Simulated assay, not measured.
Amino acid sequence: MNSKNEGALRFGRIAATLPVKDIECAKAFYIDLLGFRSVFENGSPIGFVILQRDDAELHLTLQKNHTAADFNVAHMMVENIDHLHDLVQGRGLKVVKRLQDKDYGLRAFVFEDPDGNRIDVGQPI
Rank of each mutant, 00 (worst) to 15 (best):
A56K: 07
A26P: 00
A8K: 13
A8P: 05
R53G: 08
D22R: 06
V96A: 12
L58Q: 01
F48L: 07
D86Y: 08
V88L: 08
N65Q: 14
A28E: 09
H66F: 04
T61H: 05
V96H: 07
G122P: 09
Q100Y: 12
R37L: 06
S38Q: 12
M77P: 01
Q63I: 04
R107V: 03
K27V: 01
H83M: 13
V121Q: 04
D82A: 14
Q52E: 14
C25I: 06
F48V: 07
S44G: 08
V39E: 08
V39I: 07
E112R: 09
F71S: 01
L9D: 08
L34S: 03
P114C: 07
G47Y: 06
D86F: 08
D103H: 14
A16V: 07
L106Q: 12
T61N: 02
V73F: 00
V121S: 04
E79G: 10
A69N: 07
F11Q: 09
I46F: 07
F71R: 03
T61F: 02
L60M: 06
F11R: 10
V49P: 00
R91C: 14
G116T: 01
R98A: 15
P45Q: 13
D86I: 07
N42C: 10
V95M: 10
V49W: 00
E24W: 05
G7L: 13
I81Y: 07
N72M: 03
N72D: 08
S44R: 10
H75S: 05
C25N: 09
H59P: 02
E41D: 13
F48K: 06
H83R: 14
R107A: 06
D54E: 11
M77Q: 15
F109D: 02
Q123T: 06
G43R: 07
K27D: 00
D103E: 10
M76F: 15
S3I: 08
L58I: 04
E79D: 13
A68K: 05
H83E: 14
K97C: 10
L33P: 03
R118L: 06
F11H: 10
D101P: 02
G12T: 05
L9A: 13
G47D: 09
Q52W: 02
Y30N: 04
L99D: 11
P19I: 02
G35E: 08
V39N: 04
L58R: 01
T61K: 04
I23Q: 01
K94A: 15
C25D: 10
F40T: 07
G90I: 10
